[in-house]
Simulated scan of single mutants.
Amino acid sequence: MPPKKHRGRKALYAVMPRASVSFPPEIYKTVKDLAQKKKVSIAWVVREAVEKYVADQWPLFSNAKGS
């Protein structure tokens, strides 16, 4: 039986693993301010930062998400 096809952004994120992260207060405030300035979520800022970090650490994986 083939897997179900998910439609839309919510469905895409429903199959993504989740993580909980704690920040020092000053870092959290900076991340929150960046998110508000860019009009995106805090989660978006954190994902973007992690993707850039991984690409810097392992350049061969920098195109893994298809960009």
Rank of each mutant, 00 (worst) to 15 (best):
M16L: 14
V54P: 05
K38S: 11
Y13F: 05
S62I: 00
A55C: 01
K52N: 10
R18I: 05
P3N: 01
E51N: 09
A49W: 12
Y13S: 10
P24G: 04
M1R: 07
Q36P: 04
A14T: 07
K38G: 08
V15M: 12
Y53A: 10
K4H: 11
V15A: 15
A43K: 10
D56T: 01
P3S: 01
K29I: 01
E48T: 10
N63T: 00
S62T: 00
K32W: 02
L60S: 01
A11C: 08
K32A: 05
V54H: 05
V54I: 02
K10E: 13
K39C: 04
I42C: 11
A49R: 10
S20K: 13
H6R: 07
F23Y: 13
V46N: 15
V31C: 12
V15K: 14
V40C: 12
K32N: 03
P24M: 03
K39S: 09
G66I: 09
Y28Q: 09
E26H: 11
V15R: 14
P25A: 07
P25W: 01
V15E: 15
G66E: 15
K29F: 00
L60D: 00
K32M: 06
K29R: 02
Q36G: 08
K65L: 09
K65Y: 02
E48R: 13
A14Y: 08
S22Q: 10
V50L: 14
N63L: 00
R9T: 04
F23E: 04
P24Q: 02
Q36E: 11
V54Y: 05
